[in-house]
């Protein structure tokens, strides 16, 4: 299994039946493809869709129907379409149960940074601030380290924050970690790795409470 597949196949288990879920640009939007076709969920896309679903067959693909990342989506039965003010009213009124979101950095306090690397790559805020501040549960999907091998899971974020203390859980390619008052607690390991080796790849201090982990 690739790094991405490992993250996504674990992430899909976070989605509970009957929930309303937003999937952010990057890894999260791909989680939809791991859901069974009959799964009871409403995917919210901030460009104005409640009930977005997997890409249609080529001859039925609609160029006027995309998700927030530009991918072509279809609509499930019971879907609704609306303008951006309504879409974000839904977010700010906390009608979403879960948002999965990407990160440049995430830290032991549940702070999230994912909109600005000053002078280098600033994609912008998009829906991230409102989703992070107002969704009931935020799960971050991220590689454990960046492409240079540097930790992305930090003691304290250094980049400008998207929102403070908003993250409940972090799913990386190596582990599932919960943000608690005592810092990050490792709940599961997704690969064979020792506690010491996992800690070495993580700037934040980890405590270990794995149940039947693979290490």
């Amino acid at each position: 299994m690739s790094v991405v597949e490992r993250i996504l196949s674990r992430a899909v288990m976070e989605i509970t039946p009957g929930s309303i879920v937003n999937l952010g640009i990057g890894l999260p939007t791909q989680v939809m493809h791991y859901l069974p076709d009959d799964f009871d969920v409403q995917i919210h896309s901030e460009n104005g869709i409640l009930g977005a679903w997997k890409q249609a067959a080529p001859e039925q693909m609609d160029p006027f129907l995309i998700d927030a990342a530009g991918a072509y989506v279809s609509l499930r039965e019971g879907a609704s379409l609306f303008d951006s003010a309504v879409s974000f009213a839904m977010i700010r009124r906390a009608r979403l149960d879960l948002t999965m979101i990407g990160a440049f950095e995430v830290d032991a306090h549940g702070n999230l940074a994912n909109w600005k690397i000053p002078g280098k790559f600033s994609p912008g805020i998009g829906g991230a601030m409102e989703l992070a501040q107002k969704t009931q549960r935020i799960v971050v999907l991220t590689t454990h380290t960046d492409k240079h091998g540097n930790p992305k899971i930090l003691k304290t974020c250094r980049l400008p924050l998207t929102a403070k203390a908003c993250v409940s859980r972090i799913i990386s390619d190596l582990a599932v970690m919960d943000v608690t008052d005592q810092g990050l607690v490792v709940r599961e390991k997704l690969v064979e790795i020792s506690d010491a080796d996992l800690q070495a790849l993580t700037e934040a201090e980890l405590t270990f409470a794995t149940e039947g982990g693979t290490a």
Binding site: D83, S84, F88, W115, G124, I125, G127
Partner: peptide, 14 residues
């Protein structure tokens, strides 16, 4: 380039 949170931009326009 001036960035706004997406729902804030929508609401400012609304």
């Amino acid at each position: 380039v001036q960035f706004h949170p997406q729902g804030m931009l929508a609401e400012k326009i609304r």
